[in-house]
C-alpha cells in the first residue's frame, strides 16, 4: 500500500516536476498509473475479504439459526455508531483529497487529523466490544466458553448469587440450564411462566427478572430468541472475530498511512500538481469503509 503511493516520490532529472519519477513523461501519466495500481491493489483487498465473506455465506446458508441466535450477543447500537463514525471519516477523507487538489494545506491537515481521530474512535469502540466478548467468554471457537446469555444476562442476575442453580455456569448450549431460562428470558417462549409467590418462585427472583427484562428490552426487544439454543454457536464468533479483526487491522494500517501523509501534508508537500498519495490513501480508506458497510448488517442486524 505505502509502496504504491510512494512510487511517485523519487529522485529524477526533470527540473520543474519535483515529484515526477524518471520513467514517466507527464504527471498525468504518473498519476493515472498510480491510480490504476491502487485500484488493482484494492481489488486484491476485496478478494482477500471475499474469502471471509464466502465463509460467512456458507455458514449462514447452512446454519441460519446460529446467526440469528448468536448475533443477539452483539450490541447493534455500538455497531451503528461505528458505521456513522467510519462514514464521517470517509467524508473527511474525500474532503481532504479535495483540499489537497485545491492546495488548502491547513484544511488538508485538519481533515486528515479528523479522519485519523475517527479511526481512533472506531478502534476504541471495537475495543469496548471485544472486551465485552472477552469478559463474557464469547470468543472464537477454540475459546468459546459463554457464561452469559444474549443481552449480557448472567445466571446470578436471574437466580441471585446464592441461588441453587448458580453453582453451575450458565451456558447457552447446555440444554438443561436452557430449560430454566426459556420462560423468563424470552417473551415468545411457549413455556408458561411459573407463578410467583410462595407456591412458585421467590418475589426477589421475579423482581430481578423484570429488571432484567427491562434491561433486555433496551437491547433487543424486536425479535427475542424463542427456540432452543442452536448447536455450533461458536462458529459465529469465529467468523465475527475474523471479519472484524481483519477489518480492524486494515483500519490500523489505514491510520498509519493517514498519519504518514498527514506528516507530509504538514510539510507542504501536496498541492494542485501533486496530491497522488492523498488520493491513493483516500481510496484505500474508502474501501475499509465499504467493507464495514457490509459487515454491519451482516453481523449486527440479522433478523
Amino acid at each position: 500500500m505505502t509502496t504504491v503511493a510512494q512510487e511517485s516520490h523519487e529522485p529524477h532529472e526533470h527540473g520543474n516536476e519535483e515529484h515526477l519519477a524518471h520513467h514517466w513523461d507527464t504527471p498525468k501519466q504518473q498519476f493515472d498509473a498510480g491510480k490504476l495500481g491502487i485500484w488493482l491493489f484494492l481489488t486484491t483487498e476485496i478478494l482477500l475479504f471475499s474469502g471471509l465473506f464466502c465463509a460467512y455465506s456458507v455458514y449462514r446458508a447452512n446454519h441460519p439459526e446460529v446467526f440469528e441466535y448468536a448475533h443477539l450477543y452483539l450490541n447493534k447500537w455500538l455497531g451503528a455508531v461505528n458505521t456513522i463514525v467510519l462514514i464521517f471519516s470517509s467524508l473527511t477523507m474525500a474532503w481532504g483529497v479535495r483540499a489537497a487538489q485545491l492546495g488548502q494545506k491547513k484544511l488538508l491537515v485538519t481533515l486528515l487529523g479528523i479522519t485519523l481521530a475517527c479511526g481512533g474512535v472506531f478502534m476504541c469502540v471495537k475495543f469496548v466490544e471485544y472486551k465485552d466478548k472477552w469478559s463474557h467468554g464469547t470468543l472464537w471457537a477454540g475459546e468459546y466458553h459463554p457464561h452469559v446469555l444474549p443481552g449480557g444476562v448472567t445466571k446470578a442476575d436471574v437466580f441471585g448469587p446464592g441461588g441453587a442453580a448458580a453453582a453451575t455456569p450458565t451456558l447457552p448450549n447446555a440444554p438443561a440450564t436452557q430449560k430454566a431460562f426459556d420462560g423468563p428470558i424470552f417473551e415468545g417462549s411457549t413455556v408458561a411462566r411459573a407463578p410467583a409467590g410462595p407456591a412458585g418462585l421467590s418475589a426477589a427472583w421475579v423482581e430481578k427478572e423484570s429488571a432484567r427484562e427491562e434491561h433486555l428490552s433496551v437491547r433487543d426487544t424486536e425479535r427475542p430468541w424463542t427456540g432452543p439454543v442452536p448447536k455450533n454457536t461458536q462458529i459465529f464468533f469465529s467468523i465475527y472475530f475474523l471479519m472484524t479483526g481483519l477489518h480492524g487491522l486494515h483500519v490500523l494500517a489505514g491510520m498509519a498511512v493517514i498519519g504518514w501523509i498527514m506528516l507530509r501534508a504538514s510539510r507542504g508537500e501536496f498541492g494542485p500538481k501533486y496530491f497522488n498519495p492523498v488520493d491513493f490513501v483516500g481510496l484505500y480508506w474508502h474501501v475499509v469503509d465499504i467493507v464495514w458497510i457490509f459487515l454491519f448488517p451482516l453481523l449486527y442486524l440479522i433478523h
Binding site: 471457537a141 477454540g142 438443561a176 430449560k179 455450533n232
Partner: peptide, 17 residues
C-alpha cells in the same frame, strides 16, 4: 465440538439434548 462437550460437563446431561 470439544467446547460443547465441556459445556455438557458443566451444565447439562446428554440424554436431554
Amino acid at each position: 465440538a470439544p467446547n460443547v462437550e465441556k459445556m455438557h460437563e458443566g451444565g447439562g446431561s446428554h440424554e436431554e439434548h
